[in-house]
């Protein structure tokens, strides 16, 4: 059983039009499909293949991840905040699971 837990760091407040840095981390084994278990069988690939971030329905970043991304994928990027609203973060797993998180931001 995978214990997948998304963690996101977003400032609580920003001035209108400000560029903020967002840090995201999700606990996930990111099994590359290259490793073998002790009996020599290949452990099947099991990774998060896509990550997106949207703000009030508009896209900020869309990342395609390949097996070369480390365990517990960490992604840092910048976003523009034109108004108060909500950031939505979505991770897409190989097995079809979707993990979501959201963070509100105020103008002040």
């Amino acid at each position: 059983m995978k214990n997948v837990k998304p963690r996101v760091k977003v400032p609580k407040k920003a001035s209108a039009g400000e560029v903020i840095t967002i840090k995201t981390l999700i606990s996930h084994p990111m099994e590359s499909g290259q490793r073998k278990d002790k009996d020599g069988n290949v452990i099947p690939r099991e990774i998060i293949n896509r990550f997106t971030c949207d703000f009030n329905g508009e896209n900020v970043i869309d990342v395609t991840l390949d097996p070369a991304v480390s365990t517990n994928p960490y992604i840092e990027f910048d976003a523009k905040v034109p108004e108060a609203g909500e950031f939505k973060f979505t991770w897409y797993d190989d097995d079809g699971s979707i993990y979501e998180d959201s963070k509100k931001i105020a103008i002040g």
Binding site: E58, F77, K80
Partner: peptide, 21 residues
């Protein structure tokens, strides 16, 4: 292949950090 970043209209800068193998 490692990763591909696509920047949307609200990207604050065309920069990103990631950890890779």
């Amino acid at each position: 292949d490692v990763a591909t970043f696509k920047f949307g209209p609200l990207a604050g800068s065309q920069a990103a950090s990631i950890r890779i193998r």
